[in-house]
């Protein structure tokens, strides 16, 4: 299949997209940048432009189409019934066939650092990683950008170039700025939330006195399984009274992250307990997709406990 044939078959589906934009609220990448082109609607419009001949495929467009955490929330929420991920998949295949060397949010391997342990190959739920000619290769059509391979790599040899706030260093930067913000003396906790299950809070507005954001900071991690112990420890070190981690229920987690984060946090909790830090300060809760109330309620219960414990001294 060449040229735009792969996209041609979606012409009708793209006509069905009424461009209402209701998909915005579901997209963590759009919420991170606020630019139209990063929204699901924006990406569909790009595909439209290529089909109509008004846009030439380019590196810029190709990378945009590959920037996606595959949470699939946009498609589930689309009342027009546009099969967004299927359309994206064919567009991505077309772009690769056309020779675009795209990265997007797919995982990259630093071959100089890679120890060839093949842990990432074995653990990838999407069979996106393989070992070919002595090197780890990422299948960019299969990679779901969940970041689990980053987490599992003992050599820190895997990265996602554009994390939209979900990469470990970006998370730490956000924690740092939250606890050093002089205008927010009420900062108490960090809530790391899996982007696949829950991403509550304001759509894209800012309100300094909003009751949710006042005492805790919500940070999206993509799959919660990639949340490192060091990120949690650094949060506590930088002023958090406690850390709550929201992940998918185990049977809903498509990336195998929930068991990993649970096991890791259990170990960390034991360690913290040995240095007299209450296990209540580090909690993991399962939040199903599309259940913001569970998220809010869990956070509320957690904050009540944290307030009772006070700061770590």
């Amino acid at each position: 299949m060449t040229e735009l044939t792969r996209l041609e078959k979606w012409r009708g589906a793209l006509n069905k997209c009424i461009r209402c934009g209701y998909c915005y609220e579901h997209c963590p990448i759009y919420k991170s940048t606020g630019w139209e082109i990063d929204s699901p609607r924006g990406k569909l419009v790009l595909l439209y432009g290529m089909l109509s001949g008004e846009l030439e495929p380019s590196d810029y467009i190709a990378n945009k189409i590959f920037e996606c955490f595959h949470c699939n929330r946009c498609q589930k929420a689309c009342s027009s019934g546009v099969p967004i991920q299927d359309v994206y998949n064919d567009a991505r295949a077309f772009l690769l066939e056309s020779g675009f060397d795209v990265v997007g949010t797919t995982s990259l391997t630093d071959h100089d650092v890679c120890a060839r342990c093949l842990n990432c190959v074995r653990m990838c739920k999407h069979e996106a990683r393989s070992f070919v000619d002595g090197k780890i290769v990422t299948d960019r059509l299969k990679c779901q950008s969940c970041g689990s391979c980053l987490d599992i790599c003992p050599e820190k040899g895997v990265s996602i170039r554009t994390g939209y706030g979900t990469n470990p260093n970006e998370l730490i930067d956000q924690v740092q700025s939250y606890f050093t913000d002089p205008d927010n003396p009420d900062a108490k906790a960090v809530v790391f939330t899996c982007g696949y299950s829950s991403y509550p809070g304001l759509q894209s507005s800012r309100y300094d006195k909003f009751e949710i954001s006042k005492e805790y900071k919500i940070l999206v991690t993509a799959c919660s399984g990639r949340l490192k112990s060091t990120t949690v420890l650094e949060s506590l070190e930088r002023g958090a009274w406690g850390v709550l981690i929201c992940c998918c229920p185990e049977d809903e987690c498509e990336h195998g992250g929930t068991p990993r984060v649970k096991a890791r946090m259990k170990t960390l909790t034991n360690t913290l307990e040995r240095i007299d830090i209450s296990p209540k300060r580090l909690q993991v809760v399962e939040v199903p997709q599309g259940n913001p109330k569970k998220f809010t309620d869990s956070a509320q219960v957690f904050m009540d406990e944290i307030r009772g414990l006070g700061p770590i001294v």
Binding site: I18, R19, C20, G21, W35, E36, I37, G42, V45, L46, G49, E54, L55, S58, Y60, I61, K64
Partner: peptide
């Protein structure tokens, strides 16, 4: 600022 043709195209329409 955005002036890439792809961005301009995306901002050229609404619902």
């Amino acid at each position: 600022i955005r002036d890439n043709k792809a961005d301009l195209y995306v901002y050229g329409s609404d619902a």
